[in-house]
Design a protein around this nucleic acid. Structure first.
Lengths: 198, 198
DNA sequence: CCCTCAGGTTAACGACCGCTAACCTCCCTG
DNA sequence: CAGGGAGGTTAGCGGTCGTTAACCTGAGGG
């Protein structure tokens, strides 16, 4: 993967600040003037980069869902012939990285979906569903006794566990990123194992 | 506990509908006219019962936090001399009951806190903190090896897991309330045990 | 039998917000 | 060195929203 080293574009700046603000005060709670101010331009200047406030949210949510799904597919492809447990660990690791590095996005992801236009919402939901089903498939290889509906519930619940990072206090009060990641990983595995034990 | 059998007051109707609407579309996404319509009166009629829209949200959030804390304290008091594991199970059970029965409130609880006036927000946060610390205390009796910061993180994460119920599909697609409650309970226990195993 | 008051109603005000219009100003390029 | 587009600016429009004001009504009590 080509890691970005060049400066972020204005568009990217806007998206990042918008994500932070939306996560902090909700989509309707943030005005375009505030988003503009956060990147040093004023309100209507944003319309040179986005069709409207809705478009920013849409691009954020589609981007998140797509990124999660793409990452998961890649991890699945890389692990060809590897034990299912290792694949599940890889999925967990990827999700934790995302939850720890992009907390505002994780917050938006399950909070502002209903503010989207119908077509965008359908797209996001479809990406989310694919992501969930991918997890469900791997999980049921590791725990064959788990029925599909229960597996799906378990996956959603573990997402809830992993996505709890925004509630873990501001970065700094934590025991350190590595330790937190390990703790979350152990807990996710423990939760799955407990789900699998009928 | 005195179980209510008499008809709900108008105030209670309003709070219930407001909670549902706030959970569905966010605090700023719902107008007072909609809340009024949901209980059969029109917009400004609400002001005979509440000082304003903010006051409804405040009463909801304070109520939720207080209810959770009160329930937990009661469970702790009832279990005098009982094994710590059983107390932890009782706490989990109480939280699951709440998460399954009052999904809109659970959604609001960690989503709209920042929309409150300073004083109300402080009160809610204080109640939440007490609730968390109560769990942390019991958890560290069950798993003495768990350091306090890790225990607190673990508790927050399990809350995330248990509060995932709104994502589990509308009631009906689930394998049934009892089975879902049991699954969540097993997963919470599993997550805690994995957290305790250094 | 009137008075009161709880609990509604509609009209309207002021603030705010998303967005557009009109204009300006560099910078790049032929 | 003209010119044009990218990326800003401010002014302002139209709609929405929370809230208040003024008024209405039906039930209960002295």
């Amino acid at each position: 993967m080509a890691t970005r080293t060049d400066a972020p574009t204005r568009r990217e700046q806007i998206l990042k600040e918008a994500a932070r603000l939306f996560a902090e005060r909700g989509f309707h709670g943030v005005g375009v003037d505030e988003i503009g101010a956060a990147v040093g331009i004023s309100g209507p200047g944003l319309y040179r980069h986005f069709a409207g406030k809705d478009a920013m949210l849409a691009e954020l949510l589609v981007g998140i869902s797509g990124q999660l799904l793409t990452g998961a597919k890649r991890r699945l492809a890389e692990a060809d012939g590897v034990a299912s447990e290792a694949v599940l660990d890889s999925l967990i690791e990827g999700h934790i990285d995302f939850a720890l590095d992009d907390r505002p996005l994780i917050t938006l992801h399950d909070r502002e979906l209903d503010r989207l236009r119908d077509s965008d919402r359908k797209l996001v939901r479809q990406l989310q569903r694919q992501y969930v089903e991918l997890w469900v498939g791997v999980l049921r290889e590791v725990h064959p006794g788990l029925a599909e509906p229960a597996a799906r519930s378990a996956v959603h619940s573990v997402f809830g566990l992993l996505n709890s990072t925004p509630h873990l206090g501001r970065p700094g009060s934590l025991p350190g990123r590595g330790a937190t990641a390990q703790l979350l990983h152990r807990m996710a595995r423990g939760a799955f194992e407990a789900a699998g034990a009928e």
